[in-house]
Design a protein around this nucleic acid. Sequence first.
DNA 1: TAATGGGTGCACT
DNA 2: AAGTGCACCCATT
Lengths: 583, 583
Amino acid sequence: MVPQSDSSLHSNVSNGSPLVDTPLIIHASAIRNSYLDSPKHDPHSPVVGYIPTRPSEHALTEHSMADDDICEAGGDVEGDDHRPNCPHCGDSSGTASSTPQNIQIALNKNQNKLIHLDPVPNFEDKADIKPWLQKIFYPQGIEIVIERSDHTKVIFKCKASKRGRKSQLPGFTMRHAQFGAECNDNLLVRDPTGPTGPARPSTEEGCDAENKQKKKRSVSRFNVCPFRVRATYSLKRKKWNIVVLNNTHSHDLVFNPDSEEYKKFKEKLRIDNDVEAIKRFDELEYRKRANLPIQTPMIPCDCGLTSEIQSFNIVLPTTAGADSNGPYNIGGAGKRTTTVNNIMTPLEGSSSPIVTTGASNMPTTNNNIVKKRKPARRPPPRVQRQRETMLRRNSERGVFQFEDGATHSLSSLNFDLTTSFIDDPIPHTSEGHAASDLTNTDFMASLNAGNLVDLNEIDFTDIFTKPAVQPQSQSQSQSQSQPPATMPQGRPTVASTNPLRSVYDTLDDCASSLLTPSLDDSKSILEANFMSGALYDEFMSANASTSEPPLPSTQRGDVLEQLLNPDGSPAGKDEPLPWLHEF
Amino acid sequence: MVPQSDSSLHSNVSNGSPLVDTPLIIHASAIRNSYLDSPKHDPHSPVVGYIPTRPSEHALTEHSMADDDICEAGGDVEGDDHRPNCPHCGDSSGTASSTPQNIQIALNKNQNKLIHLDPVPNFEDKADIKPWLQKIFYPQGIEIVIERSDHTKVIFKCKASKRGRKSQLPGFTMRHAQFGAECNDNLLVRDPTGPTGPARPSTEEGCDAENKQKKKRSVSRFNVCPFRVRATYSLKRKKWNIVVLNNTHSHDLVFNPDSEEYKKFKEKLRIDNDVEAIKRFDELEYRKRANLPIQTPMIPCDCGLTSEIQSFNIVLPTTAGADSNGPYNIGGAGKRTTTVNNIMTPLEGSSSPIVTTGASNMPTTNNNIVKKRKPARRPPPRVQRQRETMLRRNSERGVFQFEDGATHSLSSLNFDLTTSFIDDPIPHTSEGHAASDLTNTDFMASLNAGNLVDLNEIDFTDIFTKPAVQPQSQSQSQSQSQPPATMPQGRPTVASTNPLRSVYDTLDDCASSLLTPSLDDSKSILEANFMSGALYDEFMSANASTSEPPLPSTQRGDVLEQLLNPDGSPAGKDEPLPWLHEF
DNA sequence: TAATGGGTGCACT
DNA sequence: AAGTGCACCCATT
Ligand SMILES: [Zn+2]
Ligand SMILES: [Zn+2]
């Protein structure tokens, strides 16, 4: 039934955050996998535009022409007729390709914020997805857990933060103060997020002002973070598709190398002999343990608008339609929003409306930019094979692209532990948790100077594929000398602090539903990405402000060399890596 | 901290239903297991009195004297000093026995409604507990699921009802209408019960009156039923203890033989060759499938106050302290309360106070009765062995005892499917779901005529014990000719419709937190108990009003006979049992 | 410590 | 953004 479907859709879009989000375009990063394999997710769900990558070898030929298309999102407002023909959108016909006007339609509708991680490995096992995602999100300070899964779907979300008092973790644990009793009865009402945790309402004990200070109120801290990663398996395409649903967090992003989950993850890397990843994470761990405010650069964006990614840190005010009735803790976030918005955009944390429709607010010039950029970014089909390897690499870096064509990492990482970890779902009225002033424009801008091309990245795709698939991957990894397809060919990296204010505004709109509180300025804001190591080198050498020495050459050995000489890399993760001491 | 403990306690008592409940005394039914093994539950939680059974072979000798004691509940109001010395209450000293004044103290406090299922099998495997409980609760229309478990604890609760439209179950499924959009935003706030389900708030779509009639609002129906069964393993005693926490339901009790869980349960019975149980459930199934308004008699009470068990069906109004802030859906239940109370006690669904303190309302005579009965019911330690078998039997019948000494089944069962199944946690303002008028006083009263002694009950304890333990059980089952210890020795069954109004009132108080809505009078009210078959026979023959023919003799063959001749019983559960046609 | 309470990962349905 | 059954946890006392 249409009403059924529509209402269903609304529950996700309008209810959750009825805000109008600008469509996001993932940076079609690397991989041999055909985007044609992406599963059709809920046709009623708004689909974001994306830049498809090269079709895989088994890709349907009729889809190869979609190479330059943009799978734009169909808003649920008008209906679902204007479904794009993008395979991501579930179009199995594969005959019609998305047209520019489709993009316009998509942009002009209320759309959810979905980020397609298009080229993903051909996971043979559902269990391979999580490690792959962990590689991407751990460096971003995001610990993912499975919210739900079945044969054809895995929903990831942020791990619930440990509530209450001091965590059991030894060293510094970002465990924050157990938030005082905030009388936010509405919180749980608004937060249906946690599918597992019981919604412990703030009962009388919780809200009656100065009741027992300890507030034993079994603070069932509902997991309110709206961030989701949805992996769906398309039986038709026989491929997993991964989409970031809400690139938004109700908490700080903190990499915690002490978490049990991370240890398991790390152990798996060792078992898989994933030396490159091990190195990367050893680096991360060292920085973390040394409490070094080292800033891992975020994945630079080829559009030169990297700094705009900061808008992701903006907590938008509750927007029209959602206000405090949304399923998410919009109301609570609204308070933080004020703080955050003061940083990026002085929206005054109003539960309003500045955000109407992302696309509508977006100047057409931006749209045009998107459209214009796509072709430029997309090499002709004949370079397909070469690009695939590079695309995969970037994919593993967690590189994504906005509609403006900018590639950004999904989130920022706060390495500094001094920050009171805001895992408190209860919206403190600017309790200080959301202390904020992201005056790191310089930092972000400096990232633009980084060289985006990394020829020494190891291909991690094989890790998640069964040995049988590895030969293919191996051969692909040989073609590392090719620049990543994510890099606009011949298109110069635009170093801009705020050259495209219109785009900036667009991003703000896009982040209308973001809850991520601002990061304390006292802490270092880090944009880390799991495969940013080499990029980091480039960045460090190119960016004097951070003045970080380049990583040792071991970081960039070619694939075979590293695979054959796994011990050549500093695998000891608990002892400071020599080359890390330089930081 | 006392305040800490108190608040914790209140969250269960005062918050959930701050009503003052009269302590419940389980009918120390059969089993060889020593009551000494019962775990000490939260010392701050009100403990109900109980009649301990014989200590087991490994029972501490110093506890055998507690045989005639009553483990009374210590209210959390005054503190926890007056802890009874009952092993159930966690008193490991075992030296001092509960005194009558202890009972008085307990009765005079606000107490939780805890029902100890004292003699339970010595489960060797945690997984054996659920089937054992299923035997007890399935016939009562209660499908239990595990809410949480670990090595030392299993918490059961009612299975969440299937929400939304027609269930997938073939025949009649008591799935009711997907409750219309009741704007009960508070509901979820008040219902922290479900530890697993997300609290889907009634968002704007849910409450904005006539929004899409379908109300797709992914009706996350929080599982609001407060009913809990807690099985805890005492490392000290090396024994499992089982307690019914809230003998209260936010829904009708309907036996659904079509549920998958039930089928599994039934299959397990077959695997275990539990012919007697299979027969019992075949009978239940037949009645259900035939939609026969056959009334399975509730377990008669030896105190002659069986009809008072009906108070369990009373939904008490939200009481002082809890009102709508309780963790449970008290507010919603309050509305139903009106309906229900109109039946049993015209409390006018007020959130009030007729109920103050169960004990205080209870005449001391009742307390005296309890005290007096204990000795009479408790044979001297020397008959210990013999009684254990019988005790176990009654235990498996789910026989419980109130402080008044009456033994009741825990709940009533509504077999009639025409009833709109009230699994809607959202409190309808007397939407008709809680249609009610329990004018079955005659029926209930007639139950008192039933013969309580059942010498033909099979001992099911073996079923849940490993084969290694079976020999013991087998030998025990030989002593069936012994009357169950639960039967007052020489004490006549008191047939009373309402002879003890004071006790009746007490029971009302006791049920102050009950949420179970009234049953439609148009449906048959059934008090079923899994081992009630033989009792049923007695009842049928003794009670002309129901005029049910006695069950075939196969129902009462002795243990060995049935075990050796499992095929002799009508195991075909899908075909009507011949002897059931008579109903 | 044992006991008792609760959060939450996550797959089953 | 399936809901929930269930267990592995953790926290408190
Ligand atoms: Zn998050
Ligand atoms: Zn229930």
